[in-house]
C-alpha cells in the first residue's frame, strides 16, 4: 500500500520503526495496523495520562498533542 505524504503520515511513519512498516510488527512489539481509531486514541491518551501501565509508551505519548494522537489513530486504523 502506498504511503501518504500527509501530516498523519509524517507522524505515523516514525511509529513504524518499532511497530513495523504500516504498523505490522514482525516481532515482540504489538502490531497496531487495522485497529479502530477509537482504540488507538484511547490507548495513547491512557499511556500519556499514566492510566495504562507501559514501559516506553508513556514516554512516547508525552510527546504528542491530542490532535497528533487523532491523526496517528486515523492513519493506523486505515492500514490493512
Amino acid at each position: 500500500m502506498a504511503a501518504e505524504v500527509t501530516r498523519g503520515g509524517m507522524l505515523s511513519n516514525s511509529c513504524a520503526a518499532c511497530h513495523g512498516t504500516d504498523g505490522k510488527s514482525p516481532g515482540a512489539i504489538p502490531s497496531i495496523n487495522g485497529k479502530s481509531a477509537e482504540y488507538i486514541s484511547q490507548a495513547m491518551h491512557d499511556f500519556r495520562d499514566g492510566k495504562r501501565s507501559a514501559t516506553v509508551m508513556g514516554r512516547h505519548a508525552s510527546g504528542y498533542s491530542d490532535e497528533d494522537i487523532e491523526l496517528i489513530a486515523d492513519y493506523f486504523s486505515s492500514r490493512p
Partner: peptide, 23 residues
C-alpha cells in the same frame, strides 16, 4: 520484570526496525 520486558522489547525493536529499513 520491567527490565526483562524491556530486554524483550529490545529484540522486538531490532526485528521491527531492520524490517522497516531492509525488509
Amino acid at each position: 520484570s520491567y527490565r526483562l520486558q524491556e530486554a524483550r522489547y529490545a529484540r522486538g525493536w531490532y526485528d521491527s526496525i531492520t524490517m522497516d529499513a531492509f525488509g
